[in-house]
Design a binder for these strands. Structure first.
Length: 472
RNA sequence: GGCGGGGUAGCCAAGUGGUAAGGCACGGCUCUGCAAAAGCUGCAUUCGUCGGUUCGAUUCCGACCCUCGCCUCCA
């Protein structure tokens, strides 16, 4: 079956075919975080979506090179560096480390490359020089270098590939900064920003004087450097469609490095935003979550990842605490089934994965990563397995094959197994005491111990194979 | 004002021109000393509203209502 993915360029679902003539290598770039603060749950939805895309491509047999940039120089960062009185590197290093720790907690595979804007200044300057030489960029009176949309369109290029744009009707918003009025046209954007006093020590030399890169140019410079002037996939949050991605296309195609008939990026994908408790995240509403806020309430990265992966990436998703609790219960159902499968398969050597489940999940994921459909297939399978185990009609060989199938799928979903939580010895001793009490028909004593354990956060599961403790 | 998403059971969420996946919650049952946990099972004559096309529409078309996002540095 062929993988089909929505492409923002065509606004339709298209069959995915890599540029590589051998059909094997895939270059994938995802716009990463700006490390001025802790990333929030909405940011992570995008990165989990990128991780799923990468994992599924790998499942389909592609050799993926996954690049995610780290924006480590930008207005907000400079302002905070200034306020904190530390060096740029010192400031961003802290948030970058936290970001990667969060990413790992959410089960995301680390990208193969995580280039930093500040480490690609020569490439950025070279790209701007190319654009200036081609007459598409100009230095304005304020010393900054801007990209001219008008000149770009003048050479027959299309500005507005990702969305319908009517430049004359663009409303000039409040966000247009007064210091950018040196531009020839409002829609022009900065490639190189001339140094201003507020920048402090954050600047680099360039042919146009000291300054720093504009926002969009880093992605063009780094993606083309690492993946080539044309590559397969570029992902990001839906808010990046305009202007960021549109400007990336303009800069990258404007530099004319692509071969004839090739675009900068073949396939653009955008993840929808998140609502939290039905509302847009905001600090005043108290629904602004960073990962730590949720793990602090006892939720695991695994549960958060699962919840983020229950809805299609192009739909706005309502992230709620109730949903998170539901995620926990749903995962427990899956874990329980897998544990029983392991019991049943005990002693069996590795089996060939049972193809039925894999086929059903792949059929869903092939259709623009329909992850909700995939979970539907998985939970139908869980019920079927449970039924077979209950009526003892599942052979150890079948159980081993089922487990093998799950392991293949989990390489895509990345939900893994529940972490083993072994109860401390003193609680296990209590459990033994209760078993003895029950045997002696001292039910009052047994119930007292049960309550004591419960108060300590553990519940007793009396299974046909004996009692065990489970974290509440 | 321009452009683009959505409205499916109490909640979350798939899907299809032929009569509605899955998860959570809830009810029933099995198990149990009683529970809990776990498992099984039940749970939308109906898919925002009103029209139209059709043998048949939640799915296609039109209008309307509601909601969300983007419109120059926000994933």
């Amino acid at each position: 079956m062929a993988l089909r993915l929505f492409n923002t360029l065509s606004r339709s679902v298209e069959e995915f075919a890599p540029l590589d003539p051998a059909g094997k290598q895939v270059g994938m770039y995802c716009c990463g975080p700006t490390i001025h603060d802790s990333a929030h749950i909405g940011n992570f939805r995008t990165f989990v979506f990128a991780d799923l895309t990468r994992r599924y491509l790998e499942f389909k047999g592609f050799a993926v090179r996954h690049v995610m940039n780290i924006t480590d120089v930008e207005d907000k960062i400079i302002a905070r560096v200034r306020a904190a009185g530390v060096s740029l590197k010192e400031y961003t290093g802290k948030y970058e480390a936290a970001f990667f720790a969060d990413l790992q907690a959410l089960g995301c595979r680390p990208p193969h490359d995580s280039p930093h804007a500040t480490e690609y200044i020569p490439e950025i300057v070279a790209l701007i020089e190319t654009l200036v030489a081609r007459g598409l960029a100009y230095q304005a009176a304020d010393g900054s270098v801007y990209f001219s949309i008008e000149k770009y369109r003048g050479c027959g290029c299309v500005y507005g590939q990702l969305l319908k744009l009517n430049l004359d009707e663009l409303r000039v918003g409040e966000r247009v900064r007064s210091d950018e009025y040196a531009k020839e046209s409002v829609s022009d954007f900065a490639l190189w920003k001339a140094r201003v006093p507020e920048d402090g020590e954050v600047f680099w030399p360039s042919p146009w004087g000291e300054g720093r890169p504009g926002w969009h140019i880093e992605c063009s410079a780094m993606s083309m450097k690492l993946l080539g002037p044309s590559f397969d996939l570029h992902l990001g949050g839906e808010d990046l469609v305009f202007p960021h991605h549109e400007d990336e296309i303009a800069q990258s195609e404007g530099a004319g490095l692509q071969g004839p008939g090739h675009r900068f990026v073949k396939h653009w994908m955008h993840g929808a935003h998140l609502l939290v408790e039905g509302k847009k995240m905001s600090k005043s509403l108290g629904n602004f979550f960073v990962l730590k806020d949720l793990t602090g309430q006892g939720f695991t990265g695994r549960e958060i990842r699962y919840l983020l992966l229950t809805a299609h990436y192009r739909e706005t998703f309502n992230f709620t605490l109730e949903g998170l609790r539901g995620a926990r219960t749903a995962l427990a159902r899956l874990d329980e089934c897998l544990a029983k499968l392991r019991d049943t398969a005990a002693g069996q050597s590795a089996a060939a994965p049972e193809p039925g489940l894999i086929g059903a999940v792949a059929a869903a994921l092939d259709e623009d990563l329909n992850v909700a459909g995939a979970w539907g297939a998985i939970f139908e399978w869980v019920r079927q397995v449970n039924r077979q185990i209950a009526e003892k009609s599942l052979s150890p060989a079948q159980a081993a094959a089922a487990l093998a199938a799950w392991e293949v799928l989990d390489k895509v979903l990345g939900v893994g197994a529940a972490p083993e939580t072994e109860a401390p010895p003193e609680l296990l001793a209590l459990l033994e005491k209760r078993v003895a009490a029950r045997k002696a028909k001292d039910f009052a004593g047994a119930d007292a111990i049960r309550n004591e354990l419960k108060a300590k956060g553990w519940i007793i599961e009396d299974t046909p194979k004996g009692a065990r403790l489970k974290r509440l």
